[in-house]
Design a protein around this nucleic acid. Structure first.
Lengths: 121, 121
DNA sequence: CCTCGTCGGTTACCAGAAGTGACTTGATGG
DNA sequence: CCATCAAGTCACTTCTGGTAACCGACGAGG
């Protein structure tokens, strides 16, 4: 059997990686990790996401079996999203990424300033 | 002091996350983890990346202090890219992501087939 | 009765980001 | 002497993501 090779354009792992290595996906999964949440709650929490990208990204995640969609027949209708067990395993590898960004942000900022001074001098 | 909030559009952690949660960045950092490597080697290894996106992404990473660029005056000139210590800390959180994709690919595939059968019936 | 607002979307449209392919410079091999 | 490789850049095209309008069901308020 062939070993999966994420660097080959046609390998399913590469295509999967292309889908999850996405800014909205990362933010979304991280929020879903705190428990079930509704569409418009997500929309208000994630500043700058459009309705289109939110529903598009959620459906993509649902299709991949990472997120469960539950329609609750209240009025107006409520739709609740939550992580599946599979989605939880992914979130455990994504959360460190957000944590890394929070802890190393100042180092990156310093590097940028240095780069901009030397490269554009 | 304000706690970093990646969900706020203007927070530097959010902007940093937007840059690293990117398919080319993830693949690139993972390859650089194996040691210093040249431009055209990367280009050949990552199927489907264009020269433009490769040089663009590398310069972005260099500016963020994650990747070091070293020009070796051979002929033709050789440019070698490698991870900085900061970049190595990021790669340690990114590698599990690739590993996750490799191990859970079949589960995702099954979920997709199920979704396509039921949702499009 | 009529309109407004909410909820969770979908659709048409457009700007900007990403991809494509040619071109650069200089030494080297056929 | 023409072709090639190195590491890009540039003009052009394609395609993705953002904007905003609209949908249907219902409840509130004038």
């Amino acid at each position: 059997m062939d070993a999966p090779n994420p660097y080959a354009a046609t390998c399913p792992t590469r295509q999967l990686l292309d889908r999850i290595a996405d800014k909205w996906t990362v933010l979304l999964l991280s929020l879903l990790n705190d428990g079930p949440i509704r569409f418009n709650q997500l929309r208000r929490l994630i500043e700058g996401i459009s309705q289109k990208m939110l529903s598009q990204t959620l459906r993509k995640l649902e299709r991949d079996g990472l997120v469960a969609r539950k329609v609750i027949p209240t009025v107006p209708v409520t739709v609740e999203y939550s992580l599946t067990p599979l989605g939880e395993t992914l979130t455990r590898t994504i959360d460190p990424l957000i944590h890394w960004a929070e802890t190393h942000m100042s180092a990156v900022n310093d590097a940028q300033k240095l780069y901009d001074r030397t490269a554009r001098g």
